[in-house]
Amino acid sequence: MIRGIRGAITVTKNDADEMIAKTKILLDEMIKKNNIEAENVAQVLISVTDDLDAVFPAKAMRLLEGWTYVPVMCMREVPVVNSLEKCIRVMMTVETEKKQNEIEHVYLEGAKVLRPDLFSQQ
């Protein structure tokens, strides 16, 4: 079955090193919690809020061993008024035997406010 796995994390400033480090933390946690193997990943979409433009956060995925051939794309998040700032969001499309309610979406740091209903399960 093909499933989507969501994740998000915030950074403190528009800094390339911090954005890559925090994105890697998020990806590592998504992979660990859902037992993901790169071979089973169809694609990874990464969005950033308008206040983040120091680096493509997809560079963090290239630090993961074995993830060289996984397609990844970065984009801008819709700039909704009063939305969470300095946020990096990930949508990973994977092949898994898990049921939809067994997928562990990951929301870290300030991004916990995006889906408190899911965060309470972690």
Rank of each mutant, 00 (worst) to 15 (best):
Gly66Gln: 03
Arg62Val: 13
Asp28Phe: 00
Asn40Arg: 13
Asp50Ala: 15
Asp51Gly: 11
Asn34Tyr: 09
Lys24Ser: 05
Val44Asn: 01
Ser47Val: 03
Ile25Thr: 12
Val48Asp: 03
Val48Glu: 09
Ala38Pro: 09
Ala38Gln: 11
Lys24Ile: 04
Ile31Leu: 04
Ala60Arg: 04
Lys24Met: 06
Asp50Pro: 13
Val55Met: 06
Leu63Cys: 11
Ile46Thr: 11
Ile36Gly: 02
Asp50Phe: 14
Ile46Val: 15
Leu63His: 15
Met30Tyr: 00
Ala60Pro: 09
Ser47His: 05
Arg62Gly: 15
Glu37Lys: 12
Ala58Gln: 09
Val41Cys: 08
Ala58Cys: 14
Lys24Asp: 07
Phe56Leu: 13
Glu39Asp: 13
Met30Ile: 14
Lys32Gly: 02
Ala58Leu: 06
Leu64Thr: 08
Val48Tyr: 04
Thr49Gln: 12
Glu29Gly: 01
Ala54Asn: 06
Asn34Met: 10
Leu45Arg: 04
Ile36Leu: 05
Ile31Thr: 02
Met30Val: 06
Asp50Val: 12
Ala38Thr: 09
Asp53Tyr: 13
Glu37Cys: 10
Lys59His: 12
Asn34Glu: 09
Gly66Tyr: 05
Ile46Met: 08
Leu27Thr: 07
Ile36Ser: 03
Ile46His: 03
Asn35Thr: 10
Ala54Leu: 08
Phe56Met: 12
Asn40Lys: 15
Ile36Cys: 05
Ala60Val: 07
Leu45Thr: 03
Leu64Trp: 04
Val48Leu: 08
Arg62Cys: 12
Leu64Met: 13
Gly66Trp: 06
Ile31Pro: 01
Met61Lys: 01
Leu64Arg: 09
Glu29Cys: 03
Leu26Asn: 00
Leu64Ala: 08
Glu65Pro: 02
Ile36Thr: 02
Ala42Ser: 14
Thr49Gly: 10
Glu37Ile: 10
Lys32Ala: 14
Glu65Gly: 06
Ala42Val: 10
Val41Asn: 06
Leu27Pro: 02
Phe56Lys: 12
Ile31Met: 04
Asp51Met: 10
Leu45Gln: 04
Asp50Thr: 15
Lys24Cys: 02
Asp50Arg: 13
Gln43Pro: 00
Leu27Glu: 01
Ile25His: 02
Asp53Glu: 10
Asp51Val: 10
Val44His: 00
Val48Asn: 07
Leu27Phe: 14
Ser47Glu: 05
Ala38Ser: 15
Met30Asp: 00
Gln43Val: 05
Glu29Val: 01
Lys32Cys: 05
Asn35Tyr: 05
Asp28Trp: 00
Glu65Ile: 08
Ala60Phe: 06
Leu64Pro: 01
Leu27Ala: 15
Lys33Gln: 15
Ile36Val: 13
